[in-house]
């Protein structure tokens, strides 16, 4: 019963947060100078008026907002001015799966690289191996994706010919994108894993296991691993959200048709409905992730409920 009430309250909070995001985005986008019809070749005044009338931009902003909310509830995100002939729903339907693929595979790569490194470094705490691994991870964190991505393209695609350096069609350029994202996050995960593994390794039950004669590998994987990995699991939600939102650079460098490009281009094009649409979708993703993490954590640790 208490859990149900907790979930319900978290759900309501999420809906309210989403409403705030949609409202703020709508009005902020309109505050920016310029508009979707402004271009290098100027559109004559009478046509500009006609266009504003045609797309309802001549009405008071509040009326437009009301209309937008109604269509949003119906699931209609409106037309895209930068991609005429496509609705925002269609633009997102094309872009989101690409971003999800990039993000999920990237996260997989981050875990596959980050966790073993973290565990290994924890096992070899305060040795040269530990310091080297953590230094490499630190470099990984400091190197931005716009440095790693072109380097990977140059080496793995152009020099070695393992991948295509760009494009979506039947190509492998997205793998390079995922590797770029994965490398970046693997550094975080390695440090996180190392820290939490060390916490666990210093606990009493490990000492008990050791005194009972368990070998170092058994200690590491059978006893310490599950506890040590829990913070990493909690980190997955925010990490995936970050991967999705942060894929813009990777999408640009490898010419991939994900949602990240629309997210930026919509803003520079003043493509109002697409700005609102992409922000809403990202907001929903992040809110859902956080909601799930909260619920899972509450289920794992009853103390969170009273705090929440």
């Amino acid at each position: 019963m208490e859990t149900a009430r907790f979930i319900a309250s978290r759900f309501l909070q999420s809906v309210f947060a989403l409403f705030c995001i949609v409202t703020i985005t709508f009005f902020l986008a309109r505050l920016a100078p310029g508009g979707p019809f402004l271009d290098e070749k100027a559109v004559p005044e009478h046509l500009l008026e006609k266009m504003n009338e045609k797309y309802g931009f001549d009405k008071p902003l509040v009326v437009q907002f009301g209309k937008y909310l109604v269509s949003l509830v119906r699931g209609d995100l409106g037309p895209s001015f930068g991609n005429k002939g496509y609705s925002v729903n269609e633009v997102i339907a094309q872009g989101l799966p690409v971003s999800l693929l990039l993000g999920v595979v990237g996260l997989g790569i981050a875990l596959l690289i980050g966790i073993p490194i973290g565990v290994f470094a924890a096992a070899k705490q305060n040795t040269a191996t530990d310091y080297t691994l953590m230094a490499v991870a630190m470099i990984g964190i400091c190197l931005p994706t716009f440095v790693i991505a072109p380097l990977l393209g140059e080496w793995l695609a152009i020099r070695l010919g393992w991948f295509d350096v760009a494009f979506w069609e039947g190509s492998s350029a997205w793998v390079l994108g995922s590797i770029t994202l994965g490398l970046y996050y693997s550094a975080y995960i390695a440090r996180l894993t190392r820290g939490s593994m060390l916490d666990v390794l210093n606990q009493d039950f490990i000492r008990t296991a050791r005194s009972k004669g368990a070998g170092p590998l058994k200690i590491l994987f059978k006893h310490a691993f599950r506890g040590g990995i829990t913070p990493v699991v909690a980190y997955l939600g925010p990490a995936l959200a970050g991967l999705l939102g942060g894929s813009f650079v990777v999408e640009t460098v490898f010419g991939l048709p994900g949602l990240g490009q629309h997210f930026i281009k919509a803003a520079t094009n003043r493509d109002y409905w697409l700005i609102n649409g992409t922000v809403t979708v990202f907001a929903v993703l992040i809110i859902v992730m956080n909601f799930l993490v909260d619920v899972v954590q509450a289920w794992l640790d009853p103390r969170t409920k009273s705090k929440g």
């Binding site: 072109p150 393209g153 140059e154 152009i158 350096v165 760009a166 640009t252 010419g255």
Partner: peptide
């Protein structure tokens, strides 16, 4: 036709035989 807003990506794609 490939839309490539980034000219560095385009140049690499050319060298990569795309």
């Amino acid at each position: 036709f490939y839309p490539i807003p980034n000219s560095y990506t385009e140049e690499k794609a050319f060298r990569n035989g795309l």
